[in-house]
Simulated assay, not measured.
Amino acid sequence: MNTGKKGLALIKKYEGFKSKPYLDPIGIPTIGYGATYYPNKKKVTMKDKAISEQEASSLLVEMLKVYERQVSLLVRKPVNQNQFDALVSFCYNLGATNLSKSTLLKKVNANPNDKTIANEFVKWNKAGGKVLNGLTKRRKDEAALYFS
C-alpha cells in the first residue's frame, strides 16, 4: 500500500516546507518536508544546499516508501487507506521503533476499528520531553484521518 492524497497532505501540512536546512525541535538537521536524511542514507547537514518545493515533494514521496514498508510489516490486520495513511504519518514523524513499541500498534493489531485507538495517537505529543501544540494537533488530525 502507498500513502494516499489525504495522508500526503496531512504530512505536508504538519512538516511544513523549508527549502534550507534547519534544526527540528530536538536539534536534528532537517530539510524539505521533515527529511532528516536522503534516499542514499546520507544525513541532512546544516551545510546542505537549498532545495525547491518540487524536490522536497519528490524527496518526501521517496522517503515515505521506507515508512510505508515499515507500517506494512508491523500492522498484522487489514487496514483501509485512511488508517494506513494515519499510521504512515505517525511513523514518519516518530519512527518505526516508536510505533513498534506502542500501545497504538498493539490495539491496531488486536482490532483496527477499536475506537480507543484515537486516544493512543494523542499520547505521542512530546518532543524532548515537552508537550508541543503542533504535535497535539497533528496527533488529533492523524486520529481523525484514521477513523474517517
Rank of each mutant, 00 (worst) to 15 (best):
N2D: 13
T3G: 04
G4Q: 03
G4W: 03
K6T: 09
K6V: 05
G7D: 01
G7V: 03
G7F: 02
L8S: 04
K12A: 02
Y14V: 00
F17W: 05
K18N: 13
K20D: 14
P21R: 06
P21G: 12
I26H: 02
G27R: 06
I28N: 11
P29N: 07
P29F: 08
I31W: 07
Y33T: 11
G34T: 12
A35S: 14
Y38F: 15
Y38K: 13
N40T: 10
N40G: 11
K43E: 13
K47Y: 13
D48P: 12
A50L: 10
E53Y: 07
E53R: 15
E55Y: 08
E55Q: 15
L59M: 12
M63Y: 05
K65V: 13
V66L: 13
Y67H: 14
R69K: 15
R69S: 14
Q70S: 10
Q70E: 15
Q70T: 06
V75Q: 06
K77R: 13
P78M: 06
Q81A: 09
N82R: 02
D85A: 03
D85W: 00
V88D: 03
C91D: 03
Y92P: 01
Y92Q: 03
Y92S: 00
N93C: 00
N93V: 03
N93Q: 07
L94W: 01
L94V: 03
A96E: 10
A96I: 01
T97S: 15
N98T: 09
L99Q: 04
L99N: 01
K101Q: 14
S102R: 03
T103L: 08
T103N: 11
L104T: 02
L105F: 02
K106M: 06
K106H: 02
N109I: 07
A110P: 00
D114Q: 03
T116R: 04
I117Y: 02
I117G: 02
N119K: 13
E120M: 04
F121E: 00
W124A: 04
A127E: 09
A127M: 05
K130H: 12
G134R: 12
L135P: 04
L135W: 03
L135A: 06
T136L: 04
R138K: 12
K140S: 11
K140D: 00
A144N: 14
Y146P: 02
F147Y: 11
S148E: 15
S148F: 08
S148N: 15
